[in-house]
Simulated scan of single mutants.
Amino acid sequence: MLTTVPAPAGFGVAELQLDIDDAEHERRRAAGLGVATGYGFGGLNVLMALPHGLPVPLATLTDHQRAYIREAPAGICTVTDGQVVRHVTRPCRVRLATVRAVSASQLALEATEKFTTFCARQVIISRAPSVHYPEKLLEFGLYGIGVCLQHEDGELETLAEPRPWRPMRHTPEAWWFSETAYGRFLTGQPAPETAGPLPAP
């Protein structure tokens, strides 16, 4: 399931394309579990230390890890016979962050750069770049940020393709970002439209 949601708070005006993990989404619904960010990075650090679906003896965990497991909401993990099994996994993958702007400005570049460690990035502009000022487009390309020009009829013209994003490693920060984006999906908030494009320089 591919859906578009607004970026989480603190990341500015952007639209995120999410690839929802349908199996994990349905499992959470059945367990009455929404997002798994109640304990911030600390909780996700504990979860990342546990292999998914495999029992781990509680005796091998730290006091901090056992304390989190005792307080974790239903659907996160289960404890049976002195062993804990983690059930929760990342609920979605963020494929692409899109920032809308009047032009390929430095402001648009900086807005899309916020998503560098999480997903591919692109900016949709409504004003064609000047033929006498191609350097900014080259700069977007250097950073791997795609650029599309939206014509008056709504058609999108690709000026630069976004660089495919490949995660180097699984981090609590990336998991947290996915969880907060998933939270946007759960609340059903519409994606921002023309009311929020970045201004021209």
Rank of each mutant, 00 (worst) to 15 (best):
T4M: 05
V5F: 03
P6A: 05
P8S: 05
A9L: 12
F11E: 05
G12S: 10
D19Y: 06
D21R: 08
E24W: 04
A31L: 13
L33N: 12
A36S: 13
G38W: 02
F41V: 12
G43Y: 00
N45S: 15
M48A: 11
M48D: 10
L50K: 04
G53A: 03
T60P: 04
Y68E: 05
Y68I: 07
I69D: 03
Q83Y: 03
V85T: 15
V88D: 00
T89G: 13
C92V: 11
R93A: 15
V94I: 14
L96F: 02
A97C: 09
T98I: 12
V99A: 01
R100D: 09
A101L: 00
S103T: 15
S105G: 09
L107T: 13
E110T: 12
A111E: 01
A111D: 03
T112E: 03
E113K: 13
T117D: 14
C119S: 07
S126E: 11
S126G: 14
R127G: 01
P134G: 09
E135I: 07
L138K: 14
G141N: 13
G144C: 11
I145W: 01
V147G: 11
L156D: 06
A160K: 09
E161M: 10
P162I: 00
T171L: 06
A174E: 08
F177C: 07
A191N: 08
T194W: 12
A195R: 11
A195Q: 14
L198K: 06
A200E: 12
A200H: 08
